[in-house]
Design a protein around this nucleic acid. Sequence first.
DNA 1: CATGAATGAGGCTTCATTCAT
DNA 2: GATGAATGAAGCCTCATTCAT
Lengths: 227, 227, 227, 227
Amino acid sequence: MLARARARYLLLMEASHSTFKQDGGASASRTFTEAARRAQIVGAAIEVIAESGYAKASFTRIAKQAGLSSTGMISYHFSGKDDLMREVVGEVLRVADAYMRPRIEAQATASGRLRAYIESNIALLKEFPNHLPAMVEVFGNLRGEDPSLREFAAAMEAVVDLQVERMREAQEAGEFGEFDPRVMVMAIRGAIDGLVTRAAKDPRIDPDVCGRELADLFERATRKADR
Amino acid sequence: MLARARARYLLLMEASHSTFKQDGGASASRTFTEAARRAQIVGAAIEVIAESGYAKASFTRIAKQAGLSSTGMISYHFSGKDDLMREVVGEVLRVADAYMRPRIEAQATASGRLRAYIESNIALLKEFPNHLPAMVEVFGNLRGEDPSLREFAAAMEAVVDLQVERMREAQEAGEFGEFDPRVMVMAIRGAIDGLVTRAAKDPRIDPDVCGRELADLFERATRKADR
Amino acid sequence: MLARARARYLLLMEASHSTFKQDGGASASRTFTEAARRAQIVGAAIEVIAESGYAKASFTRIAKQAGLSSTGMISYHFSGKDDLMREVVGEVLRVADAYMRPRIEAQATASGRLRAYIESNIALLKEFPNHLPAMVEVFGNLRGEDPSLREFAAAMEAVVDLQVERMREAQEAGEFGEFDPRVMVMAIRGAIDGLVTRAAKDPRIDPDVCGRELADLFERATRKADR
Amino acid sequence: MLARARARYLLLMEASHSTFKQDGGASASRTFTEAARRAQIVGAAIEVIAESGYAKASFTRIAKQAGLSSTGMISYHFSGKDDLMREVVGEVLRVADAYMRPRIEAQATASGRLRAYIESNIALLKEFPNHLPAMVEVFGNLRGEDPSLREFAAAMEAVVDLQVERMREAQEAGEFGEFDPRVMVMAIRGAIDGLVTRAAKDPRIDPDVCGRELADLFERATRKADR
DNA sequence: CATGAATGAGGCTTCATTCAT
DNA sequence: GATGAATGAAGCCTCATTCAT
């Protein structure tokens, strides 16, 4: 039990089960075709956001990308733009969780999990080239105006706090060197996000190489000094 | 000459002299009041962008922030929104250059300049709390649609390329360890930008501490292995 | 025959038997469940209109109020919004007729019938708090664009004409004083409708007291001068 | 002073000076042409509302009526539909005040002022055939959702309360008979509004005759019994 | 130089209605 | 009979931009 808890201690979306659960927990009350349409629209939104950016991701563009005849269709399936964006993030987190979690939990050491976290996160770029860029766009443009989005942002904050706590534990266990764990978490997140953003535009970037390099980088940065 | 060139080799805005020069090189033909008006509008834009984000930074809001009665004023002084945004970036780059360059050039070693680059960049948050967040917002939302912006983005690419080249030279000179210099540059940029974004919203973050921690982090990441 | 005709001479919905008969005369061809569904929808419409006003009474709101899952249900049972609104008025008129007619016909004098008309009309507010407000809302917002509604409005006009005629007869019979019977009818209608509208929003208003006061008022207004 | 205060004691818009003052008190900060445009739009809105009803009075129709090219123009001059409707009511009240006040204040007795109130109110229909119908439409469709409109409705309530108070004073002074003054005020208002609504659609109605008849009616209704 | 009124496109949303299942 | 997904029009509003003054 303890082992399993520690095994996933760096997973980005650890806290997501309560907040970002599939369809926000309302999936039971949705028809099959309704769920399919929502998924289709969310997919189109991810493509548009990744390609054209958050600002240009209007309902009109998303509807066109999804092959829908009108924007009314989107408003019919989502209660508003915030709702759609929440679902976009939820979809990305679900995909990322499914991909990253087993790879992280397979590692036995803290540094192994850190490497798995970084490499599997960036490896997602090959499997789902639009998912992470879209999420970075959405988060970059979210302000805490709407109450529902405020709760959303708070959940993401909680994830960061958890990661910081896990990293501190690894330090105390002697697996990492001395450093401010919060700054380290922010640096990792920022480095990954920056790389994701660039990779979305620059096809020359090879995710495999970059992932490994980035993992090496942060392994050196977290290593104990005397080694 | 060589010394001077090396002295600024990590400076973000090294290449800006051609592209982002004050008023795009048209300053000679501008009157004093015109320049003042432009500066006033750019300042207001920076405040609005930093506070409300790129999406909400409409001419209407910027005009209100600047104390102008109409948006026509902005269109009168700028050829369009892209023009204003370019000027916003230019202003930030100019301020950052003035602040960072002497601190970087004062260092004699590559690692010293890297530390000065990171620390002085983050220190800017205290002196100009809105400048860097605004620039990160603008860059995050710029797409290369407009030809004028395409050239803009290309210039920024050139800066990155230059930084990569300088870092490679330092590696060859034995001052840094082995790593992919491009990934390193992207990681540094991403980590700083991520921290800037967070600092803009979270007042608990102390730029001084974070800057030093981040510099330590990347010092370990770039250090030669045998040390 | 004459007695019976005179007995109901102030009844608002006298002419309704031809125009507003249950289900517009098509009831024979309707199944039981169909009629029940229509009644359910009409009831929900009355509640929504009374509470939120005509403008906000969309099919969506009415369906929600009726516990229906989609607006298609309403369009399926009614040929359009006009049809539904006609049925709303019909339902109110039917209820009002059932309540008011016996009370009016029980009176032997013109002034007695006038009082019974006013008091029983307002007393309806206690028994069916939403019916009259809903009808006032509908009538206030109906324009004679649609041919079917034009006929509808004409029928209501005919009722007014009939009331005017009955009132003139009472004047000639020496039961009322001298006044323009059409203005009197309009004033009575307007006073009642205004009170109904207010009572729908202001719970302090006591229908019993107001009904008696209003009847007193118009008794004085219609009384012969020499009394 | 007392005489003057009592002289206008039945005036509908007595309390309007604080709430409905010209342009809501912001007129000083408005350009001449801006004020003209606003007046033009308000006028067009009054025409459309009077003719087609509140529900059909969309910005599109109002813009067309005003000869404007787009609805954006209306949004440019008014902060929203509520703002426009408030101005519509304000305009009607201003016109009504200018017309009715001197006619009411010219009367020395309570019954004279009541008659002047009713007759001058209805006489407005000839001078401004659309004003009163439009106001009745707006008030009939207003719900207290918006806070700014809630305050608006409260102001109208205060006017009614004032009229009730004045009427009670006249009763105590022996100028009127015994009746519930609140019901009387509501009946007068309802009768006038009903007549206004009908007159807007039925050209056969002669305001002069109706006004005199209605004044006669309420004179009898308010007269002391022993006369 | 500066103003602010005007424009037209586009944004999100809601509406009544239709239709395949 | 009943459902709910789909449609297209229309609603209000905000945007960047232009132009006469």
